[in-house]
Nucleic acid binder design. Structure first.
Lengths: 193, 193
DNA sequence: TTAATTTGCTAACAGGCGTTCGCATTAGTA
DNA sequence: TACTAATGCGAACGCCTGTTAGCAAATTAA
């Protein structure tokens, strides 16, 4: 798969991500993590700074990926409906590429301490604002019949962000198929799907 | 408001719910909880059995409320689309009546230990299955154009269950208005809203 | 009044927590 | 070869955790 092997630090991050996802950040101990890696708890500190250090890396790496994926959509010159479709697909792609990290990003960020927490909030707001912008565009040109773009974006993200709970890479739907399904459902509704 | 005053135990549950919601179960200490109530940590145990005892009560009380609300919809003789609308409204009503407890119910249940955890899983599955039944009905009689009822119900619940994150009782939309908005969005989509 | 119940305090327990320290071993590089 | 960096051990630290025990007030019921 990947040509260069993972550094020990990256291994730790990966295993920690898996534990944070399934047990939660607070309920995962450094001794659990060490056990999973076959080493002693103290040994972890040859590679990482602290427990929260790991969480920060996971959260902000995912934030970067979401931003990167969205930026490829942002300035395309297409109708709002189509742009929203592309944004959904981009979001779903990031979400499904690493469901474990996505789960941590979505559920464990609140265990960040300041100033990381504020920075995280800001990035998230920015991302949501960009989506609202698209919806506003669609409302303005008559594509969307809805009026409350805040509510729409919250609902949109809510339905997307549950994905990491049940998505399995070996499942029968590909990320792109999932994205298409969700786009259709949200844009056209159950009745006109 | 309520005629009979809250027992100390109910007070504890309520304050604990608020803390579990905002900080998470694992990150809330009994000393935090006691502080909030103006007593010492040890004093809590004159009223409750254990920390998880509180969590169990909150989770299963909410589960009961969701079931009760849904049961009033279940056997009504209306088209699937209308029944789904009613179910959404019922779900939203429970969610908004006590957003704090709803948040705990939705996010902290995984800290339940066996056998409560299995019982919780079963109840949840049952609830979701009932919703899938409605969607299947709608697919069978041509009301819904969609084919994958599992996916639909997951998306439906996902968008509803984020509500507790931002709903404020003093906000400008009533629970019924929220329910109507969400029903329209999901049934008709952004374009045909 | 007496008796029972509710409510709370203080102190302590046994164990778990994230983290540090000094030292050893291994692997890579020149 | 010798130097350096990566990797790990094991013990210990100071603190925090849920919970218990024994006792004392306060409240309520009879």
């Amino acid at each position: 798969m990947s040509s260069t092997p993972m550094s020990r630090k990256e291994q730790i991050d990966q295993v920690a991500t898996s534990l944070f996802k399934s047990r939660g950040f607070a309920a995962t101990t450094m001794r659990d993590l060490a056990l999973e890696l076959g080493i002693e708890a103290g040994s972890l500190y040859s590679h990482i700074k602290s427990k929260e250090d790991i969480l920060q890396r996971v959260c902000f790496k995912m934030a970067d990926e979401f931003n990167a994926a969205f930026n490829e959509v942002k300035n395309q010159d297409v109708p709002a409906g189509e742009k929203l479709r592309l944004a959904v697909a981009a979001h779903v792609r990031v979400l499904t590429k690493n469901p474990q990290a996505a789960g941590v990003f979505l559920n464990e960020w609140r265990h960040l301490s300041e100033p990381s927490l504020s920075k995280f909030h800001d990035m998230r707001f920015q991302y949501e604002e960009s989506l609202r912008e698209i919806v506003r565009e669609g409302i303005a040109n008559g594509e969307f019949k809805v009026t409350d773009e805040k509510f729409v974006v919250l609902t949109l993200l809510s339905s997307l962000n549950w994905l990491h709970m049940w998505y399995k890479p070996e499942g029968k739907m590909s990320p792109d198929e999932i994205a298409e399904f969700l786009s259709n459902l949200l844009l056209n509704g159950l009745k006109n799907f």
